[in-house]
Amino acid sequence: MSDNRNEAEARSAAASKPPLDPHLKALENEAIHIFREVAAEFERPVMLYSIGKDSSVLLHLARKAFHPGRVPFPLLHVNTGWKFAEMIAFRDEIVKRYDLDLIEHINPRGAAENVTPFTHGSARYTDIMKTEALRQALDAGKYDAAFGGARRDEEASRAKERIYSFRTPDHRWDPRNQRPELWNVYNGMINRGESVRAFPLSNWTEVDIWRYIQAENIPIVPLYFAEKRPYIERDGMMILAEDPRLELLPGEAKQEGLIRFRTLGCFPLTGAIRSTATTLDDIISELETATVSERQGRAIDRDQSGSMEKKKREGYF
């Protein structure tokens, strides 16, 4: 398979697609502006890549921002070892297709101590395998800026976060003491050891993400589309039952049904939804009539009150 041909085909498809509507165009322009500004102002930027739909959009925008050049920074994937298998296959394919530099980091302590979502509980597991792992990876790379795909509409504490979100040398976020951010003039001045998390998708909503994926024909992990898949029900969530490490508890039984995922994370902590949406059109119309938010299926958001803010203060994205 020729990567160049793939790219050429995608590009010619892009040239013939209808122009973006003004709403998506404005969001795209803003995101590209942020990418370029960070790349120009910081010495060692990195892009957090979590393989999900927001990361896919983020990556697409990065490629647009620096075209005809290469994306001038590496992608960092903080792996936990518990991602969906399809996510990892997709990641490796994308990295190859777009000629990207990928850094994968797994917390060695977590691996050595065999920290799993089953044995340590979702809060402690996330703290070690995601938050601590991210800090390790950022320190190791001496990165002074990290792009993330967070959006302000996702969660209440994110609604208050800046586009350039300042972090102390130990990666902490102080929500009460954020730099004012006026117009589109971003303050990128930091001391050595400090860093900035930059969020080009701050002003996007979930529907915007899907409409943009559709308009730009952006590849995403197939788990987002409904398909007949095996699952078990646990703690009110439908957990995908494909990974041999998933042990059934007494009373649990494998079932099969038409399901899909609205967000993707670690498979034991991410609940599926029943859905018949097999195309982007289906997903968008399902979303526009949805009555629950996308993070509803994420166990880690709910393990305690003010959960996301607490994790963010400690360095989680």
Binding site: D21, P22, H23, K25, A26, L27, N203, V207, R211, D281, I284, S285, E288, T289
Partner: peptide, 12 residues
Amino acid sequence: VETERASRDSRP
């Protein structure tokens, strides 16, 4: 029953 939204004709 709100149907699929038409593409938006203006900036936010």
